[in-house]
Design a protein around this nucleic acid. Structure first.
Lengths: 235, 235
DNA sequence: CGGTAGCTTGACAATACTCAAGCAGCGTGG
DNA sequence: CCACGCTGCTTGAGTATTGTCAAGCTACCG
């Protein structure tokens, strides 16, 4: 049951019942974190991975001059730091954006899994690479899109990813983060993010208020954001 | 011999002579491309990977409004699109920044390698994840660093990566790309990139001229860029 | 009830972009 | 050999976008 949401987002390659069972069996301790708690600190040797069960998690880096850049936002079912298995440490930190529940997977158990099943290995590998594809889409966002488009694009991404795991209600979804978080994710200041969110609302595209996102016009929003979901590899 | 530079950058996990031999044996055709030629087109089914032997390669995306965002720059010894093995396609394109030579590795042969050696699989997996770590550092660059700092940081990264494979001469190295390329990589316009490069030169940090980079003051440059090489996982 | 975190708005400053022009170098064809 | 066109670099002037500083507001918590 622990892997339900993960398998819902990752449908290829197809796993045998046996593979699924051993994956489930590798699950270790369940841990809760309060909002803003650091879950994994950068450049510290790691011996386990973290599967997000509920809530939202951020991967981020702080710069010397005090800015925070969010590198990725994770939704339930995401293996937040599976890349720590081959890398042995992370070059960034991981923190809870909201109250979260996670399940740990010891590296030793993952090693056993990969030794046993090549298909499973490929699925896990692929999962880390989809994260990387999202990382790259974010480079495009911060590097080549205007402020309001960036925010619109982020809303599109969250909508599609949350829809996949059944966490949307029609055209709205809970996204209990602050405007500061949105600013840190898009490389903007909180003040400017606020203005751009207002603009998106006034244009009738999306509304973000008190952690609730309402898509007002999905086709128009997608078009405005230049959103092409193929980078999410949901096929 | 084909894997020499690759193994020079990727020293962990340590491979057996057997693993190295089978990796070498997987090498397929050698192909040359002229500068600016597209090597892999986005969202097209792929059946092989590309190892860069000489020259520089870019991974990029074009936006609807005509901007190009470079997502990564590859140096000799890099597996440019190893991630196409688990993903089966790329969500971005790959092109030659300079004249290049590459060697192809059929997915089928990589599959055979991974079936045979778990250590080799881990090394390949790790290699794709180091690329991802670089992707994330670029998010920080475009999202949270000023224009001149971004360029300085890119110069630091290229210097360290090229030094690793013996392509630097003291504190200088060949980097035969245009200012437009640098602008596309850093999310700036060519005009602004030009001004910022002049600033870096006048401050006595780095000089970029006609595809030649001269580090003028490495400690000062590193400090100015906030460059921390740990994200390159060279240990 | 005071304090804090988050949202909102305004006025102003800094950063980066656009448009435009001129120049240098290089390869090609007359 | 020269003339031409092309690509890339450089600089200036004006504009647009985004950031900074500041203040006031709300809601919620202790």
């Amino acid at each position: 049951m622990v892997m339900r949401l993960f398998l819902q987002t990752h449908r290829k390659p197809v796993l045998s019942d046996d593979d699924i069972a051993s994956l489930e069996a590798a699950a270790g301790k369940t841990v809760d974190y309060a909002a803003k708690r650091v879950i994994v600190r950068e450049n510290v040797p790691l011996t386990q991975c973290t599967l997000l069960m509920s809530g939202f998690v951020e991967r981020f880096k702080d710069t010397p001059d005090g800015r925070r850049q969010i590198l990725a936002i994770h939704v339930p079912g995401d293996f937040v730091d599976l890349h720590s298995y081959p890398l042995k440490r992370l070059e960034h930190s991981v923190a809870a954006l909201t109250p979260v529940t996670v399940v740990n997977f010891p590296h030793a158990d993952i090693r056993a899994l990969t030794a046993k099943s090549a298909t499973l290995t490929e699925l896990l590998w692929r999962s880390t690479l989809i994260d990387a594809a999202i990382n790259r889409e974010w480079i495009v966002s911060v590097g080549a899109r205007g402020a309001s488009v960036r925010l619109a694009h982020l809303m599109c991404e969250m909508f599609v990813r949350l829809e996949r795991i059944g966490l949307t209600r029609g055209e709205e979804f809970d996204f209990p983060v602050t405007q500061i978080d949105l600013a840190d994710a898009t490389g903007l200041t909180a003040v400017h993010a606020n203005r751009m969110l207002r603009q998106l609302r006034e244009r009738g595209l999306v509304e973000f208020r008190q952690g609730l996102v309402k898509i007002l016009d999905w086709p128009a929003l997608k078009d405005f954001a230049g959103f092409d979901p193929r980078y999410l590899f949901l096929d």
